[in-house]
Structures are given as C-alpha cells and as structure tokens.
Design a protein around this nucleic acid. Structure first.
Lengths: 276, 276
DNA sequence: GACGTAACGGAATAAATATTCCATTTTGTC
DNA sequence: GACAAAATGGAATATTTATTCCGTTACGTC
C-alpha cells in the first residue's frame, strides 16, 4: 500500500497540503494516521521544528514521520518544511518600497493577490488554534452569557470584527450593544454593573478603546479583550485576553483569525445563554 | 572591543533582544551594524532561517553573523534562534491534552466550536480560490480605481465586510463612502455618474441593498456585487458578480472567504489607483 | 496457525548547518 | 606612512539533523 500512496507531485501550498491530508487519510496505516492527526492541527509547527520534534509530538519514530511526508507527496521532511518556511522567508522589502512593489506585482494580476491573502488566511487560522486556550474562551463565553448586556467596542480595523459579533448576537437574541463614535466611547455611562465589555483593538492601539476599557474596568465591570499582541495596554485591565495574530500580505492583513474567533465565541454564548 | 561587548546573560525574550540591539548598536563595527539593521526589521525570519541565510540577507559572512549573535549575549546562532522558535513552540507542553480535549469533548465545548469554525474557514478559503475568476476580480479593481468615489453598501451580515473595505480604502486614500441606514439607502442620490457601487448581500437578500443596486444601475452606474449564490437578484444588474460561499458550522457562518476576497480587492485597487 | 505482506523502529549513513580558527585586510593613532 | 589593535571572510571542524536501510514485529488471509 505504501507505494500506492506515493503521489507524483508535491503539494505547492498549505491549502494543497490540507487537501491531500484529507484525500489520503483513510488509507493511512496507524502511525501515519497519528502523524496526520497531530500535524493537521499543528501545521505551523513544521516551519520551526525538526523531524524528531514533530515525530516526538506525534509519538512516532522519526523514520515514520518521514514516511508520512512521503505519503503526502513530498520527497522528505526537508521539502515539506521548506514549503512552510517559504511564507516567512519570502523576504519583505521595507515599508516605503512595499507599495511600489505592489504596483509592479499588480501587473502580474489581482488573482495573485487573492491567492496570497488566501494563503495568509490559512496560516492565520492555523496559528489561532494554538494560541487561544479553550479555557479562556470558555470563561469569556460564560461571562457573556451571564451578563445583562454585552457591550462591544472596536474602532478602525477592529470595527468590522465587533460589528459582526453585534449582528450575530442580535440575530440570536443575546442582548448586546455596539458602540461607535468618539462621543459615546469616552463616558461608558450606559454600561452597568451586571454588564460586560468586549473590547477589540490592534496595534497601534486605539486610544478611545483603551480608555473606555480602563474606565469600565475600574468600575469593577468585567472587560474581555481581543488583540494581536500581548503588549496591548488593555491586557492589564482585562479579565481575559484573546490574541489573534493575522498573517500579512505585503503589509496588509485580512481578519480571518479574528472573525473566526469572534464568530465561534458568539455562537458559544448563544449555546450557553439559552438553556432551553 | 569585541570582548567588552560580551554580556554575561543572554536575552530571555524578544523584547530584551530589541533592547539589547538598541543598547549595543552604537559601539558595533560596520558588519555587525549591518546585521543589527537588517535583523531588527526582520526578527521573525530568525525562527525559520539558517545562519547562512540570515548572513546572506545582511550581506555579511556567516561567521560575522555569529559574532553578532555573541555581541548580543548569545552563545551563538543556535541559542538565539531557539529563543525565537520558542514563541511558536511554547504552548507545546499541553498539546496532547488539548488534542484529547478536542476529540473527547465531542459535541460540546467552546474549544470544539473554535476548531470547527477554523476548519470551516480553511474550506471556505479553498473554495474561494476555485470559484472566483481572476479576470473578473481584475476588472472590478480597475473599475474601482478609475471611479471618482467607490460607494459601499451592505447590511446585516454583509455590513462587517463592507466596513472593513471602507477602512482599508480610507487608510489608503482611495475615495470611498460607506452607506448605512435605511434612509440613505433608498435614494442613492449621492451617487454620481463617475462613481461605482459595490454591493454585498447574502441570502436571504436584504431588500434595501437590492433596491439601491437596481436604482443605481438603471442610471447607468456600474454595480459590482458580492454574494453567496448565483440566485442573488442583483446578479442581473451587476456588471460583475463575485461569489464567496462560506462553509457553515451548525447553521452559522464566519466570513472568512468574503473578508479575504474584499481585502485582496481593496489592496489591489490601491495598487492601481495611484501611479505616482 | 502458517504464510505472505505491510508497517515499524532503531541503528547506520549522508547531508546540512553551526562554530571555531586563522591568515589577511581594514581602521585608527601617533 | 608605520604601527598596533580590531575586524573580516573563508576554510576547517564539530555538531546537529535528515534520510536510508534492514532486521523485527504486527496484520490480514487462507
């Protein structure tokens, strides 16, 4: 069976790796299935780990892990790893040059850009699974479900994230309020003791959002925070911190990880708040 | 001077590395300064690169790069690299626990939900690459770049999508206007002949969005549409149709494909619109 | 329960990578 | 411009890491 698994061409992208994992999984022997299981959930580790480390994590001999790589169509671990490293290694020119390059690449086509963002999306989602602790997410979901009203705040880039949460909450009958506008933000007077605040902000952090979180937390109201780095100033006020790091394409980021995280969270709240 | 640079203890975190880079930089010889310059801007590459690669990128001999690591207080490149790899590897101790949780918790649990949405995200992104034609996307990008103002409309679920576009356009100086509120929508009087309209709506389609698209297109203004099925009523008015189908988890959808598509589109427009 | 086939793990080998060493060049000082 | 001190690059070496090979074990079939 080993030889039948051998596929001519190696996957050329993360998406293809995932596809091939699915395609091949059923016919895989026990140990290789172990590899597939762990690897699938920890794809991002490949770039920074040795075979022995990956094999160890899968509880499998190094040689077995190499057979696994080959079953996926790679020549060995090195080839597979270089695919995952390529994304990082793709040396990026500095900020000032970035937009100029973008224009040149524009000649290559908008489709290229879409492919890049798609790839970045896969990467962001992979990292997400490993940076977020289930317990923390669960505690937030419970806190929100118990609250009288969930207040949502996020400006600039974070606004689409909280507005999508607001929509889901609204749809589901979870009491929630989306805050916009500088005026409303500063006071936070409409936020009561039995409420909670969910604040989203990414570096460079929005001052208004930070200030609101500070004010509210000083009144003893639980604050949950979604951001992209531990350095977020809300971290010290927040009861729970969620970190969603987005992969970038020539300096720009889509919001895959954040949107996925908040959607899952909103749906979880809905599951808790109505013990029907 | 070499020996004076040697500092007893190695940096223990990325932040410390940056601090030490700053502290030490002035007294550094030419080649090591080159290393410091590049490395500071590309810290993330260390985790996935070999010494020769980093040295090459700094235009320096590998041995010089190692001296650079030592000047920072590390014993060599290996020690420095392991610090940057730890970032990815840190959460590893509990990987088997987490995996077990994911499997056993089964139907319930917030973590399970996140895993499911992550999975759905991967699938949505893969499907996106197959359904969107590059030419269509390219034509839209050109149309938007040529327009006086890009008008964005989307309600309910689609609102976060267009609002994220609005943010990117704003950041980049592409003239764009985001429409909200039923009142404004119905008339579309602020939309002029040299403008374009980008309308997003998912089944069941928002009446206001559809009506606005109809009105505007009858005045001969180009309408581009983002939706999730060919059955969208705007399809017959639209100059171009983009379809982003989102995978669902127990009836709910995150917006991975849509956000990725519109982010790529917005960045593409930016690349075209200012040939400075 | 014996046979043939596939899978496995560990030891041996091959390849890549980091590190040290040293001859040569550069830099700064008088 | 000569001297000393420091820095540099490349070659030699040491170490780590990937890969192959093969004897042994498990598996399915008759």
């Amino acid at each position: 069976m080993n030889e039948q698994l051998r596929i001519q061409s190696a996957p050329g992208s993360v998406a293809e790796v995932i596809e091939r994992l699915d395609a091949v999984n059923d016919g895989l022997p026990k140990r290789l299935k172990q590899c597939a299981g762990f690897t699938r959930r920890h794809l991002h580790l490949i770039a920074v780990s040795t075979v022995s480390e990956m094999a160890g994590a899968c509880d499998v001999a190094p040689s077995a892990y190499i057979r696994f790589c080959q079953a996926l169509g790679f020549s060995g671990y090195t080839e597979m790893q270089s695919l995952f490293r390529a994304r990082f290694t793709d040396f990026r020119p500095d900020y000032d040059k970035r937009l100029a390059n973008l224009r040149e690449e524009g000649a290559v086509g908008t489709g290229r850009l879409l492919a890049d963002f798609g790839e970045a999306g896969h990467k962001s989602l992979m990292a997400l699974a490993n940076t977020v602790t289930n317990d923390g997410l669960d505690r937030i979901a419970h806190g929100m479900a118990a609250a009288r009203t969930v207040h949502l705040v996020g400006l600039r880039r974070a606004f689409s994230v909280v507005s999508s949460m607001a929509y889901i909450f609204d749809q589901m009958g979870v009491p929630a309020q989306l805050h916009y506008g500088a005026g409303m933000l500063s006071s936070g007077k409409s936020i009561y003791q039995s409420d909670v605040l969910f604040a989203a902000t990414y570096a460079p952090f929005s001052e208004e959002t930070v200030r609101l979180a500070e004010t509210v937390s000083q009144r003893g109201i639980p604050v949950y925070c979604l951001t992209d780095t531990e350095k977020c100033p809300i971290a010290e006020y927040a009861l729970e911190l969620l970190i969603a790091r987005e992969d970038e394409v020539s300096g720009f980021r889509a919001l895959n990880a954040s949107i996925t995280l908040t959607t899952a969270l909103a749906v979880a709240v809905r599951g808790l708040s109505e013990p029907t």
